[in-house]
Design a protein around this nucleic acid. Structure first.
Ligand SMILES: [Mn+2]
Ligand SMILES: [Mn+2]
Ligand SMILES: [Zn+2]
Ligand SMILES: [Zn+2]
Lengths: 162, 162
DNA sequence: TCTCAGGTGATAATAGTTAGCAAATGGCAG
DNA sequence: CTGCCATTTGCTAACTATTATCACCTGAGA
């Protein structure tokens, strides 16, 4: 999406389709997990899915307040954590700052601009192959992995003398 | 070190040698960067190099206080950030918590236990090859990358029913 | 030895997140 | 359709990690 085509071994990670349907499917999975489907949860999930941008809790809060002016930031934090617990979102925290949340559950990795800390999705099948090629490392059970590629985006390159 | 031998495509990342000499070399590089060599900086660098454990600022603080009882936590934070700026340390922040610092500058990656959040070094030359194989991704200039492999360590596996 | 830019300790301020709790409500038994 | 109650929410205070401020101190060069 925001990434150019000539990526060599990498390729942009494309987010999935219809938003309304995705929120609906989410609601169903909430019930499967024994969680109530509340307007707040729908709204937060919708905002997360709609975002291209790995938003922080506060970003989601701002987005959701348009429709739910009385929602609290604490609820957003709580809900995002809940989403991660039930596998509806993942937490990404590049280079240490506030947590970023990702509604894109397709297997993918991230480009992180070391200047502006923007996070972009990227697929890298060769990495996935390596990551998935071993279920154990000594007595450590492998449960996942992620690759962060640090980059300087065009606009950040222009600002620094270097 | 803390990792078993049968790692397949991975191998443990071994930290370097003599501590006193490393602190001495560090002092020299401080001067090259125009930084004063203070007892606090030496002590913090020594503590970081001595640690096998990707310590938090507070951990370094605790270690250093043995010799420098009056050092302040703020100085430790400041100094660790300075070390990162001049390339004497790197900051690692897996799964979002407080920042972890790493005195091991050899190229390596990390195993992160999703249970206890312990961080272990690991080398993965095949990843490095992939990471290094492209200097540009579209109009993003690649400046680095890192792989985090999420694992469950033996002790964390025992504690959860699953 | 003198000087002072840069470094430090103490402390306050800030940002992000989590905890505690009373009020509200989703989902279900009747 | 109720009415119930375990969950969830909003509000708020607390907490943790980090950064800013500032007066004092000190490493390092003159
Ligand atoms: Mn993503
Ligand atoms: Mn390391
Ligand atoms: Zn940028
Ligand atoms: Zn563990």
């Amino acid at each position: 999406m925001a990434v150019d085509p000539k990526l060599g071994i990498y390729r942009p990670a494309v987010p999935a389709g219809d938003l309304g349907a995705r929120v609906e499917a989410f609601s169903a999975r909430c019930r499967e997990h024994g969680l109530s489907v509340t307007p707040q949860r729908r709204a937060i999930m919708r905002a997360l899915l709609a975002s291209e941008d790995h938003p922080r809790a506060e970003d989601v809060y701002d987005a959701v307040r348009a429709e739910h002016p009385t929602i609290s930031l604490a609820t957003v934090h709580r809900t995002l954590e809940t989403l991660c617990q039930i596998g509806e979102a993942r937490k990404v925290t590049p280079l240490h700052h506030s947590a970023r949340y990702d509604g894109n559950l397709s297997p993918h990795h991230h480009l992180v601009c070391v200047g502006c800390l923007r996070v972009l999705d990227v697929e890298a099948p060769q990495f996935d192959e390596l990551l998935g090629s071993q279920k154990w490392l000594g007595d450590h059970e492998v449960v996942g992995g992620s690759v962060e590629i640090y980059v300087r985006c065009r606009s950040c390159r222009q600002q620094t003398s270097d």
